[in-house]
Amino acid sequence: MTIALEDLLQMSAEEIWARNERPSGDELRNKEQTYFDDVYDGMELPKYIYRPTPTHLFRWSAAIENFHRIHYDLDFGLNHDKNPSILVHGSWKQSVVPQFLKDFTLPGGWPWKARFEHRAMLVPGDVLIMWGKVTGKEEKGGMGFVDLEIGMKTHDGIESMPGTATVVLPVRGGEPIPYPFVPPAD
């Protein structure tokens, strides 16, 4: 059972970091299926906690070949763009979202879609909480569609990425979710 987001935000940054629920490779290998039948309105997903450092930002810039200096050149960020520090990439946050949804739906579900906004500047030193909460569920075409509210909050409660998502979970005893994913006709 994951800790409630509301309770997590009462903690210090160090205490939040200690509550990181990002799974290990072995946990992902052996993950048991969450079925459509198991989820309920208000259910919270495991919290993924991140503590980005300049090295993490540089590694992301290099991986995707994003050379914008605001992400790795502190002098440029402070003095040219007048930012508070180097900035965490929106593209990194955007790439955490499908990972977070994938992990929740493994091994047999599907992370179908998500939409979100980028609102706050995130910097090294922030402790970030990727979170999700079930807001609705509907069975269609033998598949379990689950709506989520998602976001990435800072340790002091600022929501940097408010959004929504829809994932597909198998119904217990039902048919497997097709791969590649094909949504049912409305």
């Binding site: 929106g90 955007q94 979202v97 499908p98 599907w110 992370p111 179908w112 879609k113 998500a114 939409r115 979100f116 906004e117 980028h118 959004g163 791969y179 590649p180 994913f181 094909v182």
Partner: peptide, 11 residues
């Protein structure tokens, strides 16, 4: 200004 992103994943 960046207003947001959407993803749809199929394969």
């Amino acid at each position: 200004l960046n207003a947001g992103n959407e993803l749809e994943i199929y394969k």
